[in-house]
Design a protein around this nucleic acid. Structure first.
Lengths: 207, 207, 207, 207
DNA sequence: CATGAATGAGTGTTCATTCAT
DNA sequence: AATGAATGAACACTCATTCAT
């Protein structure tokens, strides 16, 4: 490998690292303050640079949001697909999906918060059409699973299907709002307890 | 009662009605688009007037948000206080609180959505200090109830208390994002099903 | 006519007058400094208002340029069409067209300057497609006339046709750069002298 | 001559060549898009380098414009001075000046276009004071020539002197806007035909 | 009560320019 | 010579707000 080649690789990698740093910072600020309420100057401050300098790395505020959200969704679906590919029974699959979701919150907490707070608004923009597509795919994945679970006798059949779907969906994602990656409980413990609540309820047994 | 007096009352009442109309409209637009992403012109358009005219009724955009949120919270706490005043056992109280919450979503859906999406951001402003106070009171109310329920043997004691609190809190409020006041399921039915899920879990019994 | 109707008319007319005033001012500044080199603040200053206030009347800087140029071209073609409709011989038609052109410079001097300096640049924008269309129509109008004049024996046939076209076109329009509506020579006198030069040359007769 | 000395000369010459290349490129882009509407990045792109790299060769965007324009004007005046030094009669001098002007357009087309479109704007800057000086000198050269020609009986005396001056000036320079160095007609042919039109007019003889 | 014209601070973005490498 | 990251001033434009009518 020529020295010049190594240089190019080093700088390309360095640039990528800088972009990722800035993007993480931006995601945190967007998550904390809301995308619309955040100015590009605030993002730049948090990244230790001037507003104009951001535009050396990114086209626009919108493209930052785009990269943040699509990065999260790509990663999320990769982990979901891995779970689904195992072909386990409905009960096991549900557990693994919830675990995968909390693991994803662990890795992309700010992006998940943005996803929840901004996606309705952003989805109006054709550039963010993938948000609606992801939601559709998400819904059919869970609906299929819940139906299958009811057929397999694993899940109660006396509940409204779409309510159960929303219950699980919301219950998991909303946790991104308070989850602390450095907190007392690791994501896997939280997933375990959430599964206990969702599957068995909070009522004392035998009650 | 003099005619002049009657006139004054009529116009005062009419003004109050107009304000309430505008406020409902504003809450809907804020809920749909996000507070920061909504312009006063969009609110005015939706209310059938020009932007400047809103200022005859309201001091500022902020004061609209203030009235919307505080109106919701006042109503919510009134209904919570009524439930708590009954002094029922923990299990019954929990049921009544969840029912009251869904009833509140029914009456104040856009305000609830705003509360969820904007309160973190708005709470930085001293004017909205009551948002944080409400949250604190909310937390202690539920924590006390859950502790009491565990002592009474009504709720499981093997779960992390703060996780259970968040589970219940989020599970209820996030429903405002999709709840449709004119939809298939009335708020009371949704409350009933949510209670079934939260208390007994979605797992088939005997499983 | 009801008073309200009269009010509406008066205000609509007043608004139109204000728009026209601002547009005239903008055209002058654009002509003097160049469109790209002129800031919206400079236009606003010249119009005696703040930059933001311009946007109450106009959508964008671009739409100001659009109105200025299309207003000029509409007027120009109306006067050209009137000349052509007369169906005079080539020599007379040429005289009338040149006179009409100088009259147009008199009425729209800043717009003509903009047309010359900016149209190549603006025409890249689909919104300004009419600039290219106008130029095409202009060229065929003059080419037809010059050909007819040569056929009628009125114009020399020993010159390159496209050079003659450009000679006349440029010779007339470039005058907008120095023409002064309040100057010593009225537009009609200038037209007369230009025609003398273009038709007979500047060489002393019999030379 | 030492090898080091030869190296220095070679690199100095190479640098000069690179500067000239870049300057030609810049002139073309400035002429096509307008000076103010052209970004330094566009110039750099066209020159096959990055924006920052231009600053190794040139102080500023302005200094590029300066070199382009002054280079053109120096060359122009050298050729004018050569014509004037011959001391020919007015008619011949006029012909030689027009030929020299078209030859100059041939060599410096983009610079001439810039001169026409940008000089009014640039001349406000003290650095470009020479533009106004050149124009003054240009005007007096032509005025003297036209006066002398009228005295010598070569040019018509019934025309407004300043109109004739502008007529000739504009007529020649505006051709830079469409002149194509690789086109059908060489500059000398265009000069010849222009002289025919300017001197004898486009009217058929005897008409 | 409402309008419409205007304000002025602020927004996302651009761009000429700098400079360590 | 050239790169690439950054600067900082300026730009077109937005928007909450004001106020005379």
């Amino acid at each position: 490998m020529s020295p010049r080649r190594r240089d190019a690789e080093r700088t390309a990698a360095a640039r990528e690292r800088r972009r990722a740093e800035i993007l993480d910072t931006a995601a945190e600020v967007f998550a904390r303050q809301g995308y619309a309420a955040t100015t590009i100057r605030q993002v730049a401050d948090a990244a230790g640079m001037l507003a104009g300098s951001l535009y050396y790395h990114f086209d626009s505020k919108e493209s930052m949001a785009d990269e943040i959200l699509s990065g999260f969704l790509d990663d999320l679906w990769a982990s979901y697909d891995a779970v689904l590919a195992e072909g386990a029974d409905a009960r096991t699959t549900l557990e693994r999906l919830v675990e995968a979701s909390f693991a994803s919150i662990h890795r992309h907490r700010p992006a998940v918060v943005m996803y929840q707070n901004e996606s309705r608004h952003l989805a109006l923009n054709p550039r963010f059409a993938y948000l609606a597509e992801s939601q559709t795919r998400f819904r059919s994945m869970w609906s299929d699973l819940l139906t299958r679970g009811a057929d397999e006798g694993a899940f109660r059949a006396d509940l409204d299907a779409s309510l159960v779907y929303r219950f699980i969906r919301d219950t998991v994602w909303v946790a991104a709002n308070w989850y602390d990656p450095h907190g007392r409980l690791p994501a896997s413990d939280i997933a375990e307890q959430y599964l206990a609540m969702v599957l068995e309820g909070i009522q004392a047994p035998g009650e």
